[in-house]
Each structure stands twice: as structure tokens, then as C-alpha cells.
Design a protein around this nucleic acid. Structure first.
Lengths: 221, 221, 221, 221
DNA sequence: GATGAATGAGATTTCATTCAT
DNA sequence: AATGAATGAAATCTCATTCAT
């Protein structure tokens, strides 16, 4: 294994662990020490690979986007024989599963999105600070952050063209709404800690099913 | 003014300010000092009225629920001549406006809900710690936290009875879904900091309108 | 004793100690902890009074200038019956004694001077950083830092007028030269640590005497 | 090129760069990494050639003395037809130019001198620690550190003998005084960073001239 | 009731140095 | 010889909380 591979393998290992620890304790309540301890290495080593806690978090964010994008691509590929509506529904189902499985990814992407949208307000409102913008990972995320919408919007438009999705609603609106639903589902379900099966006496899987069905009704032509 | 009134007036003043400061900077990034400074009093005084930062936050949470409940009651009262569907839609609209106006309340209620639901998992994901459960405000919130669902569910059932709302979906499911949508709207819109008018090229008010319309379609009979 | 007095007394106590510790170990090698330990208080308390290590150092610098100025004033006052030359010589002798007694003051003033003169070069070359400029003490020092030269120059001019000091050399040049000599004397003698009586087989007090005599020869008319 | 030559060439390269970096940022603010980066090599390599940061600094100190000595020798050689006074003045001028050109050398020599003179006081005022004394470079510097004085003193004595320099002042005193002036000039001018032309409204080159003239007056017979 | 001084337990980050390869 | 990953011992600074007055 060459140096580059070795390095990125190690980085990857660190992210693997950091992900879990951040997911369990939250960003502010996680100490670099905690992550290092789980890894069995020293704090210094983490700083050798990532230059700050924020940057490490940003690396996770990058991975979140990468994985989401690849998930979307895979889903689209697998749905290539289906019409636009079915494809979009498959994407949304995949998105929900993804959020359930990787709470931290959902969080990270939301965080990034808010940060970018509200930045320049001065203070440190987010876990992210202005200085973050110089980080390499920040840049990398910036470059791919728009992809999920783009590719989904494309499928929505395909659905409109093939007549499976209704006209009159902007594709972005559909995406936004779906994302909001995923976020609300994730937050109320709080998949970070609990694997509780019910919420307000409603079975979580039933709810998920309901969300998908209603979304379908909402967008189908 | 008697002692009790004087005390609760002062408490109220502190909450007023704390609310704004927490809303602007977030819980972790807000120092007790910051709040004291805005109030023009000393940190010690805040501790005299509230015993900890968490408890102060819990007081805000309590107020959030109080206000939401009173808003729901008021809305129901004003809709007493309308059918169930219209009433429920008015409640939801009120909820969305409320979240837009008081981001921190939305946050606080969500936080509380997650905490209660996931507690005992050992994690300190939430801002709230186990010790919090002994707090007076925690107890107070506990006692009213179920009210918004309850009264909304009642209206949904009225709608089912009067034929304006479709049958076959549990009222709780409807509430849950609406709440999820409100949360997603609030988080993506991030009304804490920005007053941006658009998001992903979508006009925020249009989106709100769309959410309400679609929710109506989803639940009407 | 009122609050203000109490506070400034405490500040003064801290400076007293910090001065000695910085003098003994140097700025970089002194930990805030060291100073706190000698004072028998906690680090936090020092940060309560001074906001940073740099600012504490700046407070010492301010005191250095204050004391030097008051020394110069006192010397001038005591020399009011003497001619300009004698007065200037008394000032210089006082300056040398001052540097011998308070090495750290000499250092601090030199540091400040260099910082101001060379600032804007970007990097952290000095113990002082750019951020320092916002510090209250920095401002205070800025406002009095020119005084020693000014009042000395005035006496030099008096000497020129009363015929005791030669013409043809700018008063600032005389001051600069004297200061350089004081610095060189201080640095080679290194009065921070040693109380050695000789240097290169030369008796330190003889050397001091020599410096003063030669300076007199240099400037007398 | 044999091994020894190759090694010392490499060492020399490292010193070349280290010199500049230390000069620009100061000892404490310079990281080994910085030096390695400029050299385009790894930190490990620097440690292969020098055993510690201090030792590297000591190597610079050694070079400083070497170069100063060779400069003095050269100057004396070139002044062999002049009398003692002129020779001594040429030495001093050379010394001043040297300090202006290589601030770090002036610093390093002063540092070493202070360290040797004040050592055993327990303090860690200096950049140098007690452990340093075992270093090879420390020993090497020790062996030549007295040379500049010695050879200058010899010229001063020649001046006394040929009648160009006044009697009654110990040659060491003259050297000490000149060195002090060079140090003061260097520190106030702070030639490490600024190339400012004036200081306190005095033109730096005029001041240098003044220092030399006055020194001449001080020592000539 | 109110103040603000004091605390102390961290948290992030830095960096000289070591060492396996 | 050279590398660069890894360490670990600090050091600065923060802030919720306490408490004497």
C-alpha cells in the first residue's frame, strides 16, 4: 500500500470513529480526547490528520454528501426502467433510510446548509465558525453540496415529461418539501440515540410508510 | 405589587432576554454573562432566580409550551364556527407562524421532546442532562407537554365526525406529520438568524403556502 | 475602601507578582499558572482582571512607563536649580539605575517600542500580537509612551539655551543615543538574573560611571 | 565530494535557512516545521543533523562568532597600515554593519554571552537551557567566544602605544562600551524586521555616523 | 436580593522530539 | 540518510457555578 492510500485509510478510520462519537454525544459535548481514546491513539495524531475539530466535522459532512450522492446515483441507476415518479419515490425512500441509519449525516448536511445560508451574520451561531471557510473540506463540500438537489430535480423533470408527475409545482419545491419531511422525521424520531419503535403511539415504520405515500399523492399527476 | 408578583415579573424579564440571546447564538455559545449583560444585571442574580443554565432553558421551554397551547386554544376558539378541517388547518398555520416568529421555542420544544423520548440512553446528545429531571420547570413542562397534541387530536376527531377530514389515518399520525413539516420548515429556513426571502430559489412564503395546501389535501376527506 | 480602589489594589498586587515572575523566567517561559501559584490564587482570577497574558504584560509595560516618567519628573524637579547639562545627566543616571533595578521594565519598554515601530509586518515577531492593539493597556501605553523623550528633550533644549549643552546635535539624537547605551548596559549586564559585580573583568559600577562621564563629554558644550 | 564535506554542506544549508527564519520570527515563534518547510525537507532530517532546536540555534551562534571574528581579522588586515585608532574605528564600523545586516547574529551572540555570564542562577530566562552545555556547538562557541574582544583589545593597545588612543581607560572598557552601543543601536533599530529609515525623526544612517564619531572622540588621545 | 470576585475543571490546540520504516 | 506519522506534555483561555459581603 502506498503512502497516499495509507494516509487516506487512516483518515478514513478516524472519520469512522469520529462519526460515531459525534453521533452519540453531539458536537459540543465531544472532546477530541474521546475520539482519540476510542481510536487508541493520541489527540495529537488526530490533529496531524485534521487541523481542528471543526475541520474533522467538516470531513464528516463531506462524507455525508458523498454517500448521499452515491446513494442517489445508485438509486437512479436501479430505477432506470421506472418512470420519473417511481424513481423520485425511490430516491426519497433511500433518503429516509439513510437518515435513519446515519443520523449524524443528516445533521451535518443540515448544519452545513444552514451555515452557508445564514453566514455573514457575524456571530458564532452554528457549530461552524467563519474561519472554517478556509478549510479544505469546506471547499470540497461546497463543490458537491448542490448535487443531490440537481440530480433529483432532473428526475422530477423526467417524471413531468413522462407524465407521471404533476405539473405546476417547481421541482425545487418538491425537493425542499421532501427534505423538510426527512428532517422532521429524523429529528422527532431522533435516530441518533433511540431505536424506539413507536412515537406518540404511532409505529415509526408505519409513519415512514405514510410519509412516502402522502408524498406520492402530493406529486403524482 | 406583592413579593410573589415581583419575583415572577423579574423571572419573566430574565426569560424574555434569555430567549433572545439563546435564539441568536444557540445554547452552547451563549454565556450566562451575555444574558446578564443584556439585562444589565449580574450573573449572580440570574442564578438567584434560576439555578442553572439548563434550568433557565427549561423555563423557556415551559413558556414555549404555554404559549403554543394558548395559541392553539385561541385558534380553536376563533374557529368554533368552522368545521374540523378548517380548524385543524388554522392550527397548523398558527403553528408555522409561531415557529417562524419564535425559532427558539420550536427548538426548545423539539429538544425537550427528544430528551424525554430518548432519555436513559446514557448519551448526552441533548443539551439537557439527567439531573435536569429534578428541576421544577422540567416537571412543569412534563405536565403540559402533551396538551398541544391532545387538543389538536380532539379537533381532528371532530373533523372526522363532521365529515370534513378523511378517516383511516390516526389523528396522532396527522399531528406528527404536521409537526415534522413544521420542524423541517423551521430548520431549513433557519428563522433564528436569517430573514432571507428565498431558499433554493423558492420564495419562503410560497413554500409555506404550499405546505399548508398539501397538508389540507392530505387530510381532507 | 471602595470597590474601585479594591479592584485596582488587587490588579496592582497581580502586576507586582507578574513583574517578578516575568523578570525571572521571561515572557514565553512563564505560565499564567506560575503567577497564580505565587499569588496563591487561581488562574481564572488573573483572567478576570486581565484578559490575556499579553494584556497582563502590557499592564506591566504601562507601569514601566508611568514609573519612568515619574522618575524623570522627580529628577527634573530635584534638579531645578541646576543647569540643563546637570539635569540631563541626572536623568540619565536615574534611567540607568532604573534599568538596573527593574530589568523587566527596560525590556518591556523596548519591546513596546519595537512593536510599534515594526508593526504591520504581518507575523508574530514580537511577544506582542496584532490583536493586542485593541487592549486598553495598549492604548494607555500609547498615550504616554512619548513622554520620556519629550520631557528629556525639553531639558536638553534648556541646556542648549543656558549654554551648558553643545549645539549642533539634535536633542532626539542625544536621547536616542543615551537610550541605546542604557539598553546595551542592561542587556550585557543582564540585571534580570545576575548581580555579578564584574563583566569582562570590568567592575560594573565603574563602567556605569564611565558611561555617564563619556556621555557628559559627548554633550557638554 | 567526500562524506564529511557532504554532511557539512548540508548542515550549512540548514543553518542558512534557519538563520533567516529565526531572524524573521524569533526563536520561540519559529517551529522546526517552518524551517523544514522552507528547506523542502522533513523535520526528521533537521534532527538528524542537529539534535535539538537549541542546538541548531547554537550552530547559528557559532557561525555568528566565526563570521564576526573573520570580519575583524579581515578589517585588521586591511587596516594594517593605519594606526590603532583608525583600525579600532574600522572594527567598530564593521561591527555595526554586521549587526545591521545580520540581526540574528547580534542577538545570538548577546544571548550566548548572557547565558554564560548568568548561568547557574536557576532561571530559564534565556532561550538556552542548562542541558545545552553538553552540546558540541556550545563547546565550540565557548572556545572562540572570547576572540573578538581579544583581537580588538590588541588593536586598542596598539593604538595606545602608537599614541592614537588615549590612556587611562581599560581596553576592555572600550570594547564593552562599543558593544553596548552596537546592541542598543541594533535593538532600537530592530533591523530584524523593519527597514525604516528613521527613528524618532532621526535618520538611522546619521545616527550610525554620530555613534562612530562620538566613539572616536571618546577614545582618541 | 444583588453583586462581582473567585474558582477549577476542562477544552482546544501546539510542537519539540522520537522512531519505525 | 530521510521521512513523516505519532506522541504527550504543556499552555492559554473559557465559563458555569459558588459564595462572602
Amino acid at each position: 500500500m502506498n503512502k497516499v492510500d495509507k494516509r487516506s485509510l487512516k483518515e478514513s478510520n478516524i472519520i469512522d470513529v469520529a462519526e460515531k462519537v459525534f453521533a452519540k454525544r453531539g458536537f459540543d459535548n465531544t472532546k477530541m480526547e474521546d475520539i482519540a481514546a476510542v481510536l487508541g491513539i493520541s489527540k495529537g495524531t488526530i490533529y496531524f490528520y485534521f487541523n481542528s475539530k471543526e475541520n474533522l466535522y467538516m470531513a464528516i459532512t463531506y462524507r455525508a454528501y458523498e454517500q448521499l450522492i452515491s446513494l442517489f446515483h445508485r438509486t437512479i441507476h436501479e430505477s432506470k426502467d421506472l418512470n420519473g415518479l417511481e424513481t423520485v419515490m425511490n430516491i426519497m425512500r433511500a433518503f429516509m433510510d439513510f437518515s435513519e441509519e446515519h443520523y449524524i449525516y443528516g445533521e451535518a448536511m443540515l448544519n452545513y446548509y444552514s451555515f452557508v445560508r445564514t453566514t455573514g451574520q457575524g456571530a458564532k451561531l452554528n457549530k461552524l465558525t467563519e474561519g472554517m471557510k478556509d478549510s479544505l473540506y469546506y471547499q470540497k463540500v461546497m463543490s458537491i453540496q448542490g448535487t443531490p438537489v440537481e440530480i433529483t430535480v432532473k428526475e422530477i423533470m423526467r417524471g413531468v415529461e413522462d407524465g407521471s408527475i404533476r405539473t405546476g409545482v417547481k421541482p425545487q419545491m418538491i425537493y425542499l418539501n421532501a427534505w423538510a419531511l426527512v428532517i422532521g422525521f429524523m429529528k422527532l424520531n431522533d435516530t441518533a440515540v433511540s431505536k424506539k419503535q413507536t412515537i406518540m403511539k404511532i409505529n415509526v415504520q408505519d409513519w415512514k410508510q405514510y410519509i412516502l405515500e402522502e408524498t406520492r399523492n402530493m406529486i403524482k399527476s
